[in-house]
C-alpha cells in the first residue's frame, strides 16, 4: 500500500468523475440510453496525470457502433474531462449480456418504444421462447414475432395484435 500515489482519494475521485463522463455518452444507435446504462463501459483507469485508459465491450461481436462509441468517449474525456491522452480498448471477456443493461436503461428503452430484454438468460441458455414480450406502446402481451433480426443486430421485430403497431424488441443475449 505504501507504493500508492500520495493522493489516493483525489485520484479515485478523479477516476469516478471521468467514469461518469465517459458513461454519460449516448449510444450512437440508441441515443436514449447511455453507455453506462447499456453496460458496455467496463473500466476507466487514470494511468497518469494526463492519461486515461478506457475499456469498452461490444453488445454483438460485429456491432459497428463500437467505433463511434470509442470516438465519442475520447472526445468527451478530452473536451470536458481535460484529459490529453485517451486510449480506448475493446474487450470481449467476459461477454456482454443483456443482463448488463441497468434498470434505468431498461426503463428508457421501453420509453423509447423498444421492448426491453427479459432478464436472466444464462450464457448457455437456449434461444428464449417468444412469450411474455409486451407491446411498449399499449402494454398488451398479445404480440407476435415478425423477424428475429431487425434494424440493428441487437433487436428483433415484433407486432402488437392489440394496437397493430410494429415495434422493436431488444432481444436477449
Amino acid at each position: 500500500m505504501s507504493a500508492r500515489p500520495a493522493h489516493p482519494t483525489g485520484a479515485a475521485a478523479r477516476e469516478a468523475e471521468l467514469r461518469a463522463l465517459a458513461g454519460s455518452v449516448p449510444d450512437p444507435e440508441l441515443p436514449q440510453v447511455s453507455l453506462a446504462e447499456l453496460g458496455v463501459l467496463r473500466t476507466v483507469r487514470a494511468t497518469g496525470p494526463d492519461r486515461v485508459e478506457v475499456e469498452l465491450t461490444p453488445t454483438y461481436t460485429g456491432c459497428p457502433a463500437i467505433e463511434t462509441m470509442a470516438e465519442d468517449v475520447v472526445r468527451v474525456l478530452r473536451e470536458r474531462g481535460g484529459v490529453a491522452e485517451v486510449a480506448v480498448r475493446t474487450v470481449l471477456a467476459p461477454p456482454w449480456s443483456t443482463d448488463d443493461i441497468t434498470a434505468e436503461g431498461r426503463r428508457k428503452l421501453a420509453e423509447a418504444g423498444i421492448a426491453p430484454p427479459r432478464p436472466g438468460r444464462g450464457a448457455d441458455g437456449p434461444v428464449p421462447l417468444e412469450l411474455g414480450i409486451r407491446c411498449p406502446n399499449c402494454g398488451s402481451a398479445d404480440t407476435a414475432l415478425l423477424s428475429r433480426f431487425s434494424s440493428t443486430a441487437c433487436k428483433a421485430l415484433r407486432r402488437c395484435a392489440s394496437c397493430r403497431e410494429p415495434f422493436d424488441h431488444f432481444k436477449e443475449l
Binding site: 461490444p58 454483438y60 461481436t61 460485429g62 456491432c63 459497428p64 415478425l146 423477424s147 428475429r148 433480426f149 431487425s150 434494424s151 440493428t152 443486430a153 421485430l157
Partner: peptide, 18 residues
Amino acid sequence: EEEVALANIALDLLGQAR
C-alpha cells in the same frame, strides 16, 4: 425482413472474422 436477417448474421460473422 429476410434481407435484414441475412445482413445481421453476416455482420455478426464479420465481427468474429475481424
